[in-house]
Design a protein around this nucleic acid. Sequence first.
DNA 1: GGAACGGCAGTTTTT
DNA 2: CTGCCGTTCC
Length: 819
Amino acid sequence: MNEFDEFDAFEAAAAPVPLSQRAMGARPMPYLDGLNAAQREAVEVLDGPVLLLAGAGTGKTRALTTRIAHLLTLNKARPGQILAVTFTNKAAREMKERIGRLLGEMVEGMPWLGTFHSISVKILRRHAELVGDATLHLKPSFTILDTDDQIRLLKQLMEAENVDVKKWTPRWVASHIDNYKNRCWRPDAVPASAEKTIERVPGTFTTKRDGGSGHEVKVTEVYRQYQRRLLELNAVDFGDLLMHCVTIFQAHPDVLRQWQDRFRYILVDEYQDTNVAQYMWLRLLAKAHRNICCVGDDDQSIYGWRGAEVGNILRFETDFPGAKVIRLERNYRSTAHILAAASGLIAANRGRLGKTLWTEAEGGEKVRLIGHWDSEAEARWIGEEIESFHGGHRHAVGQRGLNDIAILVRASHQMRAFEDRFMTIGLPYRVIGGPRFYERQEIRDAMAYFRLAVSPTDDLAFERVVNLPKRGLGDKAVQKIQVEARERGLSLLEGAASALAVGAIGGKGGAALRVFVESMGRWHADAIDSAANHVELAERILDESGYTAMWQNDKSPDAPGRLDNLKELVKALEEFENIQGFLEHVALVMDNDKAEQADQVSIMTLHAAKGLEYPIVFLPGWEDGLFPSQRSMDETGMKGLEEERRLAYVGITRGEELVTISFAGNRRMYGQWQSSLPSRFIDELPEDHVDVLTPPGLYGGGYGAAAQSFGHQSHMQSGMHDRAAKADVYNSPGWKRMQQRSADRAQPVHRAPVIIDAEPAARFSVGDRVFHQKFGNGTVMGIAEDTLTVEFTTGFKTIKAGYVQPASAGGGGLDDVPF
DNA sequence: GGAACGGCAGTTTTT
DNA sequence: CTGCCGTTCC
C-alpha cells in the first residue's frame, strides 16, 4: 500500500464525472426496498446538513451505507469524492463490506472511507512540510509513535528537566498533553485556566530559561519541548494527526480549499463521540458546501472521559443552520420490555435531544433483576443460568448457543470472577477487548526492529531494542552512546558505531553491540532494496537478532502465545509490498478481531460492547460505587453520573431477547471484602418491565433475606454518612417494590445445571505435570471425575481436565516455531 | 548487569 | 490481592 499510488488513484477518482457517464440515466435502486420512512428520508436527503439521530438498533449502519450507495448511483459523487469517517477500523471495514454488497462489483474501493486518524495521515503526508518552521519541519516519511513511545519520550524530557517523575508521572503529563491536543491547543494556545504545574525533584533547580523559576515547571513547557523533539525525530503522535491537519487547514486556505473541493459529501459515524479537534476538522472541511451528514445518538455518548464532547451533537443545528434532523426510532433489535426498561432509565438524564424508541415486536420476557450475597455467588448463578439456556430448558428463549450470550461488566477486574468460575465448570468463554495486537510487548519490540532497519535514525526504536535480548548493554553503555551521538550530531545507531570505533565501549557488551550494529546495516540494505523479499527479511531480523530465541528460552506460560503472535505478525507482512507500508498499517489499522468460530460466551466491558448485540445479555455488578462508578461521580459530578447512566442504557440495549441485571452485596476489592448497596440505576428501571428474581438459597425471600444479602448488616455499623445513603435507597419506591416482589414470588430460581459435553479429557493421574494457557505449568494434586485440582505457582485451582494439557506436549510449542 | 525484594496504586480505551 | 515500577543487593 504505497500511499502515493493511492493519491494517484485518488486524483483520477476526483476528476470531474464525464458527461457521457452522467447521461446514463437512473439505474435501478434495489437497495431502497425495505427501508422504513425515516430511513428512506435519511438516504434521500442528500444535500445540505443532515443530523441523523439513530437510536440503538434502528438500522443506523444500513442508513449510512445505503446513503453512500445512493450518492454513487445518482452520480452525485464518485467514490473518491466521498469522505466517510468512523472511529474504529472495524466500523470502517464493515461499512466498506456493506457498500460493496449493496452495489455489487460496480464500485471500486472508497479511498476516503476510514478512521479520522487514517484519513488524517493521508492528508498530512501530503503537506508534512507545512508542520514546523523553515529550519525544522516534518517530512512526508514521518513515523507515528504509539502511546508507549510517547511516554518514554516524555519521561526523558522530564528527567532532563529534573522533574520529580514519581510525583508527576510521565503518564499523567501525557494525558494532559493529549487533552490539549484533543482540543487543538498548541503549546502557546493553552489557556491559563487549563495550565498545570509540576515540580522538580526537591533541591534541584534549572538554569534553563522560562522552564519555570526554580522549583516549578509548567506542563506547557514540557509540551513545547516534546513537540520540538517530535519534529527532530520526524514523528507525530496520535493526537498530532488531527491537530496538525487542523493547523494546516487554518493557516493555509489554499490547501483547505483543495480538500473542500475534493470531498463533495461528508458522512460521519458516531458523531456523539467526536472531540473538539475532530469537530474543527469536520467543520473546516464542510463549511464550503455544507454537505455533511452526521449520524449519532446522544444517549450513547460514553467517551467523555477521553475528550468526546456530547455538546457537538447537541449543538449541530446551531452550527449548521437549516440542518435537517431525522430521527430513527423504530428499533429492530430488542423486545418491548427491554426497550421500555432502557428508555425509562435514560429518561432521568437532562439535556437530551430526545427520542422514543418503539418496536412492533410483541411479547418477550421482562428485564430480570436479581441480587446475590457476593460476587462469587453472582458468578456461580450466571454460570448456571447459561448452562440451562444452553441445554434448552427454557421455553421463552429457546435453545441458545454460547455465542448468543454476553456478560457486560463496568470494569475489567469484574471479569476475573467469571473467568475463574467458568474455568472451574468448563464453560467456554472469550474475553473481548484486552490489549490490542499491536500494543503487545513482543509486537512493539519486533516493530522497533523493523523501524530501525527501515530508518536507522529512529532513536526511539534503537533505545527499545539495543539491549533486547540482553546484550550486556546497560544504562552506562547507552549513556556513552547518547553522549557520542550528541557530540557528533549523529543518530544513536551511528553514535553506537562511532563509540565502538573510538573504543568507548569494549568487553562483552562491546562485542555484542558490534554485532548488533553490523547486522542492522545488513538489514537496512535489504529493507531499502526493493528486490529483496521483505517477509523473509523480517523473519531473518527476528531470528538473527536473537529476539525469537529470547522467547523460545522463556519458561513463562505466555511465551508460546507471544511466539504465536510473532508468527502472525510475519504472516501479516505477506499482504504488503514492503516493510514500510506494513509499519504504517500496524500503527494505525491493525487490530485483533479474530473470526469467532468457537461456541463461547463473550465477556467484555460495557464500553467494548457498544455497537454489538446479543440475544441474551447479563449485566452484573450493578452496585453504587462500581456502577455508577464512584470515581466518575467524584471527578465530574452530575456529568459523570449521566455518562454512567448512558453506559447502563448502552448495556441494556445490547440485549435482543433477555436481559438480566444483577448486583452483589459483597465484593472483593483489592483483596478486601467490601459491602455495597444496589445501584441507584436499579431504582430508575420502570417497574412494569422488570421481573425481580429470588436468588437460590434465600427461600424465604422478603425483606430480611434481601437486606442481608445486600450488605445491610455491615452498613449498620458504618457511620452516619452510610446510614443516610442506605436510608435513601431503602425508602425509594424501587426498593420497596423489590421487597414486595421478592416476597410474592418466593419460589427459587434454581434449575438443574446441564453439563456441557466436555472434550474427551486426557487421562491424568495425581502428580502429573500439566500446562494451562493462563496459569502455566502445574502439578495435578487431586482428581474427581473430569475435574482436576492443580497446583500452579500461583496457588491451587480446580479446573476441568479439558482445559489443561500434559506439560510436555502443551507448554512448549517451541519445536515448530518458524523462524 | 541481573535477580530479588519492597512499595504503591488500582475505571472505562481508540487511534 | 495483584501487577508494575524502582531500589537494593549480590
